[in-house]
């Protein structure tokens, strides 16, 4: 086992991928709790599709992928929140519209320029080779920003998540914190998307939170547990994908599903089965 790890980390691209992946897993787990509890899980999924469209356009024009996709996805996040608040088009329908729309744009742009090559497959399902040095530095800085902001506003995020009406009534700017949450989610999704794949990145946000909620009873313990679960699942996933030459993103998701199953089983054995959130 140890030999495998040494061998793995002798490849610089794998070291980069593991650093970025671990940071993204951490951010995703932190944010995922609030998103799942606020019934915003689908926003993560919608944003990853917007990210796919943005990546395709950036590649077609030869622009830096992160510099193009981060502002676009942040914009889409704010738009989705607006639509969720506005009752004319319901939140889930709005997300479906925007996500399929950007997927279509992305596919058309790609087929007109580079053609439907393995690149497309990499965008959709992730590639561990996608990270260059600039990406790594940018991911590290942005992940740290996400983590620091989350810690600074931890109590307010809890209050807005638990009871938005009460928070608003006592003068907390709940709308602002929803925006903040959407903003941080957008950044996390773009950072993780190329490794995990546009189709799979939202699982990093949803699974650790749901897994932790099977067993933990306070908000703080759910957050801590989901972070630990997320990191462990990511490492196991990467090692498994290396050993059996499987796609990294999909392996990480599979390990997350297993972890969820184990936690749910333990909860069931304890006789405290809860309705899925």
């Amino acid at each position: 086992m140890f030999d495998v790890l040494v061998e793995m980390f002798s490849y610089p691209f794998l070291v980069r991928a593991v650093i970025v992946g671990a940071l993204v897993s951490l951010c995703a787990a932190l944010l995922g709790n609030s998103l799942v509890l606020k019934r915003y899980s689908m926003i993560g999924d919608g944003l990853s599709h917007v990210g796919f469209g943005a990546l395709a356009v950036a590649t077609a024009f030869g622009w830096a992928p992160l510099a193009v996709s981060i502002p676009l996805v942040v914009l889409a996040a704010f738009l989705l929140l607006r639509l969720s608040d506005n009752s004319k088009i319901k939140g889930d329908a709005a997300i479906a519209m925007i996500s399929t729309g950007s997927l279509a744009v992305g596919v058309i742009v790609l087929s007109l320029t580079t053609g439907m090559t393995t690149d497309v497959c990499n965008y959709l399902f992730g590639s561990i080779l996608a990270m260059n040095k600039t990406d790594v530095y940018m991911s590290m800085v942005l992940s740290i920003v996400v983590i620091v902001i989350f810690l600074l506003f931890y109590h307010k995020i809890f209050a807005v998540t638990f009871d938005e009406t009460f928070a608003r009534a006592t003068g907390v700017k709940a709308g602002g914190y929803n925006m903040l949450l959407a903003f941080l989610t957008a950044i996390t999704i773009v950072l993780g998307m190329r490794m995990m794949g546009a189709m799979l990145i939202s699982s990093l946000i949803i699974f650790p939170a749901l897994t932790a909620m099977r067993l933990c009873k306070t908000y703080r313990s759910v957050i801590l547990c989901s972070v630990v679960v997320s990191l462990i699942c990511f490492f196991i996933g990467v090692v498994v994908s290396y050993l059996y030459a499987m796609p990294t993103g999909a392996s990480v998701v599979m390990v997350n599903i297993l972890a969820f199953g184990i936690f749910a089983a333990i909860a069931a054995v304890k006789g405290k089965v809860k309705k899925p959130a």
Binding site: L37, K38, F162, D163, F166, T170, T218, R220
Partner: peptide, 24 residues
């Protein structure tokens, strides 16, 4: 407030909920 459905399955400790009253 009147309780919302989301709170029924929200993992929160009693202390965490009470403290959140100080936020304003």
């Amino acid at each position: 407030p009147q309780q919302t459905a989301a709170q029924k399955d929200f993992p929160a400790g009693v202390e965490e909920v009470v403290y959140s009253g100080f936020l304003n």
